[in-house]
């Protein structure tokens, strides 16, 4: 079986041709199989977020290739790259990136607007996603009025509402206490059992040492410095 995601000597330089050019990802090659739970581990500035961004089709590599489900996405036109991003990946951002003056329901519904589906179908999808994160009773609440843990669950529901193959989470436990971190990992376990591929960037040992993790990829200064089972 071919891997779901492949990066081939992928590099990302911010502000190239400028004095302050920064090479955030410096030639990383890796493969991630479908259903795998992979942790990208490393200190701040090691390139975890940049690599997640490249894998999740948020940005394009300066050089190298990113292959998702057998298709090289690095050179795809923006429209198709967006389509791959929307249909393949769900994102849980470090700061959740919710729209504070929208309700929980409306935030979760956002990724569905560009999809060819009716409003009724969208509402059903949202209800299912909110039930999965145990927020069914909070649909009408504005996210600004929720706790940090609840906001993260809204972010997870939004990431899942498009039924992606891959969930990308960037420092998901950074703003959670240990109890909520454990709860999050239990939720991730359920997703893994459902066949979802999880790629998590973190330096939190609670995540790295958790039995749900299949593989840890260690990064430093944009380079892959180690790889192995959890």
């Amino acid at each position: 079986m071919s891997p779901l995601i492949v990066t081939d000597d992928v590099r990302k330089t911010y502000h190239p041709n400028r004095a302050d050019a920064t090479e955030a990802v410096a030639g990383i090659s890796l493969q991630i199989d479908a259903g795998e739970v992979v942790v990208l581990k490393g200190p701040s500035g090691s390139g975890k977020t940049s690599l997640l961004s490249l894998i999740g089709c948020m940005s394009r590599p300066t050089s190298g290739r990113v292959i998702v489900a057998g298709e090289e996405v690095s050179r795809l036109p923006e429209r198709f790259l967006t389509l791959v991003r929307r249909r393949t990946f769900g994102f849980v951002f470090q700061h959740y990136q919710l729209i504070p003056d929208l309700s929980v329901r409306d935030n979760v519904m956002l990724p569905l607007y560009p999809e060819p589906m009716s409003l009724t179908e969208m509402q059903q999808r949202v209800a299912t996603a909110l039930a999965e994160v145990e927020l069914a009773g909070f649909a009408g609440r504005r996210v600004a009025h929720l706790s940090g843990g609840q906001q993260q669950r809204v972010a997870i529901a939004r990431a899942l509402v498009n039924r992606p193959q891959v969930l990308i989470a960037d420092e998901p436990t950074a703003h959670l206490d240990s109890r909520l971190s454990i709860e999050l990992l239990q939720r991730f376990e359920v997703l893994k059992q459902a066949g979802l591929t999880l790629i998590v960037a973190t330096h939190d040992p609670v995540v790295c040492d958790h039995p749900l993790v299949d593989r840890i990829i260690a990064l430093h200064d944009g380079r892959l410095i180690g790889e192995g089972g959890a």
Binding site: M58, T82, Y113, P114, N162
Partner: peptide, 16 residues
């Protein structure tokens, strides 16, 4: 600006 960024990140096209 942040809202536009979020919409793009979660799969809205520039045209959308």
């Amino acid at each position: 600006r942040r809202e536009i960024g979020i919409l793009k990140a979660i799969g809205w096209d520039t045209a959308d």
